[in-house]
C-alpha cells in the first residue's frame, strides 16, 4: 500500500501514527482514504473540499502542484508526505 507521512501537529488526529497506509490510484484518492480513516483531520487539510493553501503534498521530493495536483497518479507503494507551509503576518 501507499503511505502518507503526517506532520507532527496533526498526528494527534491519527492516533499518534507518523505514517499512515492508504489506498488509491491518485493523490486525491489517497487523501480521501486518509481522511476517511481519520475524519478529524479533514478540516485541517481541506477547505470547501480543496486542499488548504498552506497544505503541500509531496511524492518523494516532488510537490504535486508541479505534477497533476490531486489528479497525480501514484504507484501502489508510493511514499507521500504532507508538509505545511508556515506563514504568519
Amino acid at each position: 500500500m501507499a503511505s502518507i507521512k503526517i506532520p507532527t501537529p496533526l498526528r494527534v488526529y491519527t492516533d499518534n501514527e507518523a505514517q499512515v497506509s492508504v489506498s488509491g490510484a491518485t493523490v486525491g484518492d489517497a487523501l480521501s482514504d486518509l481522511v476517511g480513516q481519520y475524519p478529524d483531520l479533514k478540516q485541517h487539510l481541506f477547505q470547501d473540499d480543496k486542499l488548504r493553501s498552506f497544505v503541500n503534498v509531496f511524492i518523494d521530493d516532488e510537490d504535486i502542484r508541479f505534477l497533476d495536483g490531486t489528479d497525480t497518479e501514484i504507484e501502489a507503494d508510493a511514499s507521500l508526505r504532507i508538509i505545511p507551509s508556515i506563514a504568519g503576518g
Binding site: 506532520p7 507532527t8 503541500n56 509531496f58 510537490d63 508526505r81 508538509i83 505545511p84 507551509s85 508556515i86 506563514a87 504568519g88 503576518g89
Partner: peptide
C-alpha cells in the same frame, strides 16, 4: 514588513532533525 513565511523544505528538514 507584515508577512513571514518558511518553505516546505524548511519544515521537512526541521521535522527530520527533531
Amino acid at each position: 514588513y507584515h508577512r513571514y513565511a518558511m518553505s516546505p523544505k524548511n519544515w521537512a528538514d526541521m521535522e527530520d532533525t527533531a
